[in-house]
Computed example of a mutant assay.
Amino acid sequence: MIYDAIKDGEPTPQGQKTRYYFEPLDEGYSNSGIDNMRVSTYPDGSVETAYPMSGDAVMRWVPDLNDGQGGFVENT
């Protein structure tokens, strides 16, 4: 999925890095549960980070949950 995001995603320059925005559900990953994702690359093309931004399978970390122990919640 990360390879396809770089190959087929929408590139956006961010200083020396490039961010690629990708919609897995529209690009053949119908069972991924990810609507949108972002991949950030260094100038040499290596991947800095990749993560889902929205979708049924996407959850986010909330550090204040569980008396400060943190926990995951659905990303709404």
Results as ranks from 00 to 15, higher is better:
F22Q: 05
S30R: 06
M37W: 09
S54M: 03
Q69R: 14
T41K: 05
S46L: 10
K17W: 04
E48Q: 12
S40H: 05
A5K: 05
Y21G: 04
F72G: 07
Y42T: 12
E10M: 14
I6A: 02
V39T: 11
P11Y: 15
G15H: 02
P13N: 09
T49W: 04
Y21W: 12
V58T: 08
S32V: 05
M1V: 15
A5F: 09
W61G: 05
D35E: 13
F72R: 11
G68D: 00
I6Y: 00
V39R: 03
S32D: 04
G9R: 00
D35S: 11
N36H: 11
K7I: 14
S54Q: 02
D64P: 02
Y20C: 06
A5Y: 04
S40I: 13
E23V: 10
D44A: 11
G55Y: 00
Y21H: 14
Y20L: 00
T76Q: 15
Q14M: 13
V62T: 08
E27M: 06
A57L: 07
G33K: 02
V73E: 05
P63H: 08
M37S: 05
Q14F: 08
V73N: 00
G28W: 00
S30T: 08
D8T: 12
S54F: 00
A50S: 13
P63T: 09
Y20D: 00
Y20N: 00
N31L: 14
E27V: 03
P43K: 01
G70Q: 06
R38V: 15
V73L: 01
V39L: 06
R19A: 09
T41Y: 03
N66Y: 08
Y42L: 14
R38I: 13
T76P: 15
E10G: 05
S32L: 05
M59D: 13
D4C: 06
F72N: 11
G45C: 07
K17Y: 11
Y51E: 02
Y3N: 14
Y51N: 07
T49V: 10
T18Q: 12
V62Q: 15
E10Q: 15
P52I: 01
Q16V: 13
G28H: 01
M37V: 10
L65S: 13
A57C: 10
L25T: 08
T12R: 02
P24S: 09
V62F: 05
E74S: 09
K7V: 15
E74H: 04
A57G: 06
G71F: 03
V62W: 00
T76R: 15
L65H: 12
D44W: 14
T18V: 13
F72P: 04
P63F: 05
Y20A: 01
D8A: 10
Y3R: 11
M1Q: 02
P43Y: 11
G45R: 12
L65D: 09
Y51M: 08
A57Y: 06
S32R: 04
G70A: 08
L25R: 07
I2G: 13
G55Q: 04
T18W: 10
G45I: 14
N66M: 02
N75T: 14
D56L: 03
D67E: 09
R38M: 15
M37P: 07
P24T: 11
D56M: 04
Y29E: 12
T76S: 14
V58C: 02
Y51Q: 07
G9Q: 01
L65C: 01
N66D: 12
N66S: 09
R38A: 10
S30Q: 14
S40K: 10
E74F: 03
D4R: 09
M53T: 15
E23L: 06
Y51F: 10
N75P: 07
S40C: 10
V39S: 00
N31Q: 10
